[in-house]
Write a protein that binds this DNA or RNA. Structure first.
Length: 257
DNA sequence: ATGGCCAGCATCGCTGGA
């Protein structure tokens, strides 16, 4: 039974719900991980999504951040995790179990600028996330980590590597933290099938960046090594980015057998 | 041309995003 899994930073689920419903109807993913829902659970559109054929688990807050996992099959996981570390008040993590798969949805901090306190928070969050994944690997072998990583792992993931050099999203400490996650025993799912080509998942709203394809690949689906033999394809779906009032991110998709 | 846009807020100018 093939499984279609996707991630999408929707930049406000309130604004983007019509796009999400259209995309679910067209693409029929088994799992869709959302980031930046920007709402509390009390306002989450559980009913509309259920009517569209999807069960939801959400972990949100007012105004900022917030993650959710939509699934065709209802998740009965009693070991869901919604917080990376105790002092972190930002809703950026949701880990659930679906059959034999551990699904970990992340919205990694943006970091603002390498000289900003938010950058320190980002690197600290990545350290804590590394420890968390290391623990998860002790109890789960089939792990999918997907979401908005806010890191372009290599220059092939950047439209203008010279212009972006040293900046947040591409800086060496961020890339080192990303590679450290891979070194725990994960592969970048998209790069299993598209090793070199420059394809992006985010384009700035400004400067007609999408039309000029000035983008970054910062949304990822990581596959634990045990799952790699089950991967059959991965692609980035640019179609939602062409709509009226789009999110600045577009879905990344991966299929398992 | 080192800026451009967008979402949310007890909105009308700021924060945060990337």
């Amino acid at each position: 039974m093939p499984l279609k899994i996707a991630t999408w930073n929707v930049n406000s689920l309130r604004v983007r719900l019509p796009h999400v419903l259209d995309w679910l109807a067209t693409e029929q993913p088994d799992v869709l991980a959302l980031q930046e829902i920007k709402m509390e659970e009390v306002n989450f559109p559980y009913q509309e999504l259920l009517e569209a054929g999807y069960h939801s688990i959400a972990c949100g807050q007012k105004t900022y951040n917030g993650v959710a996992i939509l699934t065709k099959q209802e998740i009965t996981s009693d070991n869901a995790i919604t917080c990376l570390y105790q002092e972190d008040e930002q809703r950026r993590l949701l880990a659930v179990t679906l059959n034999d798969l551990r699904i970990i949805n992340v919205y990694i901090p943006n970091g603002a600028h390498p000289s900003d306190a938010k950058y320190i928070y980002k690197l600290h969050w990545l350290e804590q996330f590394h420890l968390f994944l290391n623990e998860q690997l002790k109890t789960h072998s089939n792990i999918i980590v997907l979401g908005d990583f806010n890191i372009a792992p290599t220059d092939n993931d950047v439209h203008d590597p010279q212009g972006w050099e040293g900046q947040v999203l591409v800086s060496e400490p961020e890339r080192a933290a990303f590679n450290a996650l891979l070194n725990l025993g994960f592969k970048d799912g998209f790069r299993l099938f598209t090793p070199e080509e420059k394809v992006y998942s985010w384009w700035d709203y400004r400067a007609a960046a999408f039309r000029r394809n000035m983008g970054l690949r910062i949304d990822h689906i990581l596959i634990s090594d045990a799952l790699v033999p089950r991967c059959v394809s991965s692609h980035i779906d640019k179609a939602p980015r062409t709509l009226e009032k789009p999110s600045d991110h577009t879905p990344v998709v991966l299929e398992l057998r």
